[in-house]
Design a binder for these strands. Structure first.
Lengths: 316, 316
DNA sequence: TCGGCCGCTGTAAACGGTTACATGACGCAT
DNA sequence: ATGCGTCATGTAACCGTTTACAGCGGCCGA
C-alpha cells in the first residue's frame, strides 16, 4: 500500500494518505523491512567519528543518501577486531549495504565476519570481488616532495601516520619515492612518528625544531598533524614559511584558514563518501575507482618566497 | 532465544551459539525489532553533519551508544521543515528514541510531526514535557566580555551567528549583557553578521580591520568564525593578540593548536551528546539539564600582555 | 437488458524472529 | 514402584506490513 503499487486507484490512494496524515499514522519501519526485505538504510563503518576528515566523509555520503531517501547508520571507534566483528554481525536486516573504511585492519579478515549477501564498498582498501574507492596517496605525497624539491629544499622531514594504517604507509611510500626520484637519500632521522592527531603533530613538531641539523621543510602525513606541528613551530618562534616550509595532506576545510594558509594535497573527501555510496547502490558490477588528489599550493610551503639555499629545479 | 532468556539450559544455549557461529548465522534485525518492539538503535538529528562541532557531538553519543550496544542513525542538513518532517516520520520502528538538535527551527513544531511514543531528548532547545540538554550560552558569552573588559578593552566587536539560531542569539544576548554590566553601550556597528562558518568569519574579519574606528577586541560567536577572522587578520597584517584580541566560543579540538592558541569558551560538546543519550535511556523522568561552559584563557586574547590603553578593572 | 471481461478491493499467507503456554521427561519422596 | 513437582523442550500465535490471489462489482457492448 504505502509504496504506491498494486491495483489501487489514485484517488483511493490519496484518500488513504490524507486520512493517514490526519491520524498521524506512519508505517512501522521494521515490519516493512521484514516484509520487503529491504531497509532503506545503509551502514557506514569508519575507524573514527571525530575530526574534520571523517565528518566530511559522512557528509558526502549523507548528501547523496538524502537524495535517495536512505538512512545512515554510522559507527566508529573500532579499536579492535572484536568490536568490528560485533558491528558487522549486527547489520543483517538492518541495512541494505555497507560502506567500510578500515585502514588499520585487514580488509579480507573483516569481510569474513560479514553476513552473506550484504553488499559492501571499501573505502581506502581493496579486497577481491568487492567494490572499492581508493585515493592515490602515494602519488599525492610524491607530488608534495617534488614541489618542495623544486622550491630548493633538500632536507625534508616527514611526520608519519599511525603504523599499520594503509593511507599512512602509502603516503610515506610516496614521500620516499619522491626523495629517490630527486636523487635524495631517505633519512630515517627525518621521519617522525605520528598518529594523525593534532597532538601527535605537535609533539613531532617540537622534536623537529630541536633537531641539531634542522630540516628546511616538513611534510605532515595529514592536515591535523600539520596543524599540531604549526602550533609547535610558532611556540618555538620558528616562522612558517620563512624559517621552515610546511605541507599537509587532505585539505580539510579549515586548511585554507590557517595562518599561513596551509599548502596541502586536496583529497576529495566528500567525493570519497559520495562515490562510495554510488558504487554501493549500483550493485550491478563490482569495480574499483581511484581518486586522484591535487596539490594545493598556498603559503605555508613558501612557494612565493625566494629561497637562495640552492637553485630551484623541477622534477618530473 | 538469542537474547538469552527463557528456560533454556546454559549448555544448550552455548551449543546453539557455537553452531550459529559455525554456520555464520546472524539474527535478522528487522524481524527481531518487529517482535520485541525495540530496535537497538537511536536516531540523531542534527542541523549539519559537517565540522568539528557536530562531529564532536556525534562522537560523544557514539561512545556511550557503543557501551550500550546501540546503533546510531544520523541525519543532518535539514534545510527546511519538510525535510525534517520526512525524517521524523520515518523513525517509527526504526529507532527507540531520538536526540534532536535543531537550533534553527521551532522545537514544538517539529515535535508535532513525530510519531507518538517516541522518546525524544532535545539538544540546545526546550519544549514542554520533553527532556533536554542546554548550554548556558549567555553566561559563557558574558564571561568572555567580562574578561575582555578586565583586560582593558572598551571597543569589543561581536561576530554574530546565523539569525534564527537559538545558540547564536543567546550568545549575542550574553555579549550585550556583558557590555551593559560593564557600563558600555552596545554599538550596532560593532556587531558583524556571520553564519557560524569559517568563510563568514573571514568576511567579518575583513570588514573589521577596515573599520575606521577599529575595535581592540573581537568576540566571535563560535570558533569556526574565529578561525576565519584570524585568517583575515593575518592577511591584513593585523597581529593577534598584539594588535587585536580575539576570542571564540565552543573550544573545538583544534582551538588550542591555532597560532596563537585561541582563547575561547569551552562547551563540553561531547558531554552534550553523552548526557543527551543518558537522558534518553533514562526515560523514567523528563528533566532538563544546563551545561555550564568555561572560559579557557589562551593567548589570542592577550591575557599575558600588558595593555596600557586603559587600566584593567574587574567586573562581577 | 444481460453477459463477459477488466479492474478494484478484501483476505490470507509470509517475512523471521520472540514468547507464552502446553507437553513431556526426569528425579525425588513416600 | 508410583505419583507429583519441576524444569527443559516443542509448538503456535503474534509483531505490522507487503503481496499474491481470489472474488466481486461495474462498465460496455451486443
Amino acid at each position: 500500500m504505502f509504496n504506491h503499487k498494486g491495483p489501487v486507484r489514485e484517488a483511493t490512494y490519496q484518500r488513504v494518505l490524507a486520512v493517514a496524515g490526519r491520524m498521524r499514522y506512519t508505517p512501522h519501519a521494521a515490519a516493512r523491512s521484514l516484509s520487503t526485505r529491504s531497509t532503506s538504510a545503509i551502514g557506514v563503518v569508519l575507524p573514527e567519528l571525530h575530526g574534520e576528515f571523517f565528518s566530511e566523509v559522512i557528509r558526502g555520503i549523507d548528501l547523496f543518501a538524502r537524495e535517495r531517501g536512505l538512512h545512515l547508520i554510522v559507527s566508529g571507534s573500532h579499536s579492535d577486531g572484536a568490536a568490528m566483528k560485533a558491528v558487522l554481525q549486527a547489520v543483517r536486516g538492518r541495512v541494505d549495504g555497507l560502506i567500510v573504511m578500515s585502514p588499520d585492519l585487514d580488509a579480507s579478515t573483516l569481510l569474513h565476519d560479514l553476513p552473506r549477501g550484504v553488499p559492501v564498498v571499501l573505502l581506502n582498501a581493496t579486497a577481491d570481488g568487492r567494490s572499492s574507492i581508493t585515493i592515490d596517496n602515494a602519488g599525492g605525497a610524491r607530488a608534495v616532495v617534488e614541489h618542495l624539491v623544486a622550491l630548493g629544499h633538500r632536507r625534508i622531514a616527514f611526520i608519519c601516520g599511525p603504523a599499520n594504517n594503509g593511507d599512512a604507509s602509502q603516503r610515506r611510500r610516496g614521500y620516499r619515492a619522491g626523495l629517490r626520484a630527486a636523487g635524495l637519500d631517505a633519512d630515517a632521522a627525518l621521519e617522525a612518528p605520528g598518529s594523525f592527531t593534532e597532538e601527535s603533530g605537535y609533539e613531532a613538531g617540537k622534536r623537529i625544531v630541536e633537531m641539531s641539523n634542522r630540516p628546511t621543510a616538513v611534510f605532515a602525513a595529514n592536515d591535523a598533524m600539520a596543524i599540531g606541528a604549526l602550533s609547535a613551530f610558532n611556540e618555538a618562534g620558528v616562522h612558517v614559511p620563512a624559517d621552515l616550509a610546511l605541507v599537509g595532506f587532505d585539505d580539510i576545510p579549515i586548511a585554507r584558514f590557517l595562518s599561513p594558509p596551509l599548502t596541502t594535497v586536496k583529497v576529495p573527501i566528500a567525493d570519497l563518501g559520495r562515490r562510495g555510496l554510488a558504487l554501493l547502490l549500483d550493485s550491478s558490477k563490482v569495480h574499483s575507482e581511484t581518486l586522484k588528489p591535487n596539490l594545493i599550493v598556498r603559503q605555508s610551503c613558501g612557494a612565493g618566497l625566494t629561497r637562495t639555499r640552492t637553485k630551484p629545479q623541477e622534477e618530473t
